[in-house]
Write a protein that binds this DNA or RNA. Structure first.
Length: 566
RNA sequence: CGGGGUGUAGCGCAGCUUGGUUAGCGCGCAUGCUUUGGGAGCAUGAGGUCGGCGGUUCAAAUCCGCCCACCCCGACCA
């Protein structure tokens, strides 16, 4: 590639609408432009990176026994009715009508289409397992597109689907994909961590997310320093410490005028927040449910959803407090409380000497013991783990850090094959539903995640495997014949040896060339300048470390070939 | 969806509070000359329905109303 001919509009200043590094740098370096909120164009260099990531994904998928297909983006309503997701997906799915007013959705994933494909073309146990994948645009009308490529409304995703005869086969397929995913991210230069995850709208029982640790990540992940336990904090378990003990004293009513929040009451009474019982009121399927958690803990919505068995609930709002005046906002407590259910976090089992609302305006109780002064319907894990909590498996210290979800794998089971009647005949001629798995990688998101993990104040720093080119050839004073000739020769040699090079053949000042090269972030750089005039050497610069070494052009090519494993 | 904010040249911004000539600045772009190991200098020049529609006014980028777009903060996901 010759830079003078390449369409790379670099920018000196950061675009006003880009907040995070990957977005800002992709735009500044001329890889990416925005068309509308959450919808982007990839320019030549951006497209090259994406194609490289795709290449790695293809290699690993094929090696793991999956086969590539191309599925439609525009999908008929009828298929989505069958799975029940036409309703369930809601406004998140982009919808349109054809000229005959028939409904279509733009695929956010392709379980329906692929299940239809397989059920109509595979019917025997001899056909299984089947593992198919595609790489294509996906559409999700996100509530809030954000952070450039990290959360777009149209994005590139690799989605794959496995069909097996039984659970065991599905677990094998799942494991093969899980292992392949790890290799994909490692090869892309993306550091990652696989964590237990919620299954959300895709459904199914077991799921792992592949997280790329990064400060801008929208998820928090909890992981153990001592063992391999790791989970999304939305469902991470943790080992509870011994609850506080009471001193056998009877509960005492204390006057706490206008002290409603835990923070207010705890400083008013001079008691630690963890000695409080926070009593949260939820409206669950139109019934009030009390949830008790330690005063210093947060209830987790996903955990609650699992415990309650429904997603149809909300924390009491203004209108709910008015509708149920027996609950006094700010003074609700478990003692004498009437609710359809009282659910307590495990941490409160056997807790004593606690403080809580007295269910009387401007009063709280102290010296409250669980079991003696109140009882609960059941104890559950409903609070969120946080940094420093004890690992549920080994008791070691857990860390919580932010991550970008770059992939997720699901054991679906019969979630789609049963309603969509994706069946096969087993060896005995009995009809059985196929057992499915589904697997996704956000290709464009991987690109952004890698930048979040690899950049500095001057620009991006690409891992060799997905860099838009291997070598950036920078002749300074390109108009000087000797340097121009040397640069051309080096560039041609790269082409001959199968190395990808970008030649900066522009008659720009050295400063401009260096600045653009830093921004674009090609891992290796060959500077042809003063040193060449002196002894015919070129200077190899490593983008990541800033290391500079003078050597002959031949030596540089050999070194590069070696780094590429060729 | 709720809350906050921004729309002025390709990009980044000023001007708006307190309406009043040809709407400015920097970068970028074009042409010429001089420059060239870290975003060069001088000169000349092109480029704008001031997000849109409506209103107030002798007069609107500026005041008012409605709409649209985009960004940020909270509940969801590759």
């Amino acid at each position: 590639m010759r830079q003078s001919k390449l369409f790379v509009p670099t920018l000196k200043e950061s675009p006003a609408d880009a907040e995070i590094a990957s977005h800002r740098l992709l735009v500044r370096a001329g890889f990416l432009r925005k068309v509308a909120s959450g919808i982007y164009e990839l320019l030549p260099l951006g497209a090259r990176v994406v194609r490289k990531i795709e290449g790695i994904v293809r290699e690993e998928m094929n090696a793991a026994g999956a086969q590539e297909v191309v599925l439609p983006i525009m999908q008929p309503r009828e298929l989505w009715e069958e799975s029940g997701r036409w309703e369930k997906y809601g406004p998140e799915m982009m919808r349109l009508k054809d000229r005959a007013e028939r409904d279509f959705g733009l695929g956010p994933t392709a379980e329906e289409v692929i299940t239809d494909l397989v059920r109509t073309n595979a019917s025997s146990w001899r056909d299984l397992p089947i593992n198919l994948y595609q790489i294509g645009d996906k559409f999700r009308d996100e509530v809030r597109p954000r952070f450039g490529l990290l959360r777009g409304r149209e994005f590139l995703m690799k989605d794959g689907y496995s069909f097996d005869r039984d659970e065991e086969g599905m677990r094998r397929s799942y494991q093969a994909m899980y292992d392949a995913y790890g290799r994909v991210f490692t090869r892309c230069g993306c550091s990652w961590r696989a964590v237990e995850a919620d299954t959300g709208i895709i459904g199914g029982d077991v799921s792992h997310e592949f997280m790329a640790p990064a400060e801008v990540g929208e998820d928090d992940i909890a992981w153990c320093e001592d063992c391999d336990y790791a989970a999304n904090v939305t469902l991470a378990a943790y080992r509870r410490a011994e609850p506080p003990w009471g001193e056998g004293r009877a509960p005492e009513k204390v006057h706490t005028p206008e002290q409603r929040t835990i923070a207010e009451v705890s400083s008013f009474l001079g008691m630690e927040p963890e000695r409080f019982i926070k009593c949260l009121m939820f409206l669950v399927e139109d019934e009030p449910v009390a949830v008790l958690v330690p005063g210093d803990r947060e209830a987790g919505e996903i955990k609650l959803e699992r415990v309650l068995g429904t997603g149809e609930f909300r924390l009491f709002g203004e209108e709910d407090w008015e509708r149920f005046p027996e609950y006094l906002q700010g003074f609700v407590g478990p003692v004498g409380l009437r609710a359809s259910r009282i659910i307590a976090d495990e941490a409160l089992r056997g807790a004593g000497g606690m403080a809580c609302g007295a269910n009387e305006r401007d009063y709280h109780l102290t010296g409250v013991d669980e079991g003696r002064d109140f009882t609960v319907s059941f104890f559950e894990d409903v609070t969120l783990a946080r940094d420093g909590d004890a690992c549920p498996r080994c008791g070691g210290a857990m860390r919580v850090e932010a991550g970008i979800e770059v992939g997720q794998v699901f054991q679906l089971g019969l979630k789609y094959s049963e309603p969509m009647r994706c069946l096969y005949d087993d060896e005995n001629g009995e009809s059985r539903p196929m057992v499915m798995g589904t697997y996704g990688i956000g290709i464009t998101r991987v690109m952004a995640a890698v930048i979040e993990q690899h950049h500095d104040e001057r620009g991006m720093i690409w891992p060799l495997a997905i860099a838009p080119a291997h070598l950036h050839v920078l002749p300074l004073n390109y108009e000087r014949e000797n340097r121009r000739a040397a640069a051309e020769k080096l560039y041609e040699s790269c082409l001959e040896r199968g190395l990808e090079a970008l030649l900066d053949d522009r008659e720009e000042s050295a400063g401009v060339k260096f600045a653009d090269a830093d921004l674009i972030g090609i891992p290796y750089r060959a500077v042809i300048g003063k040193g060449y005039d002196e002894d015919g050497s070129v200077e190899l610069q490593v983008r990541e470390t800033g290391e500079k070494t003078r050597m002959s052009a031949e030596a540089l090519l050999d070194l590069l070939a070696e780094r590429l494993g060729r």
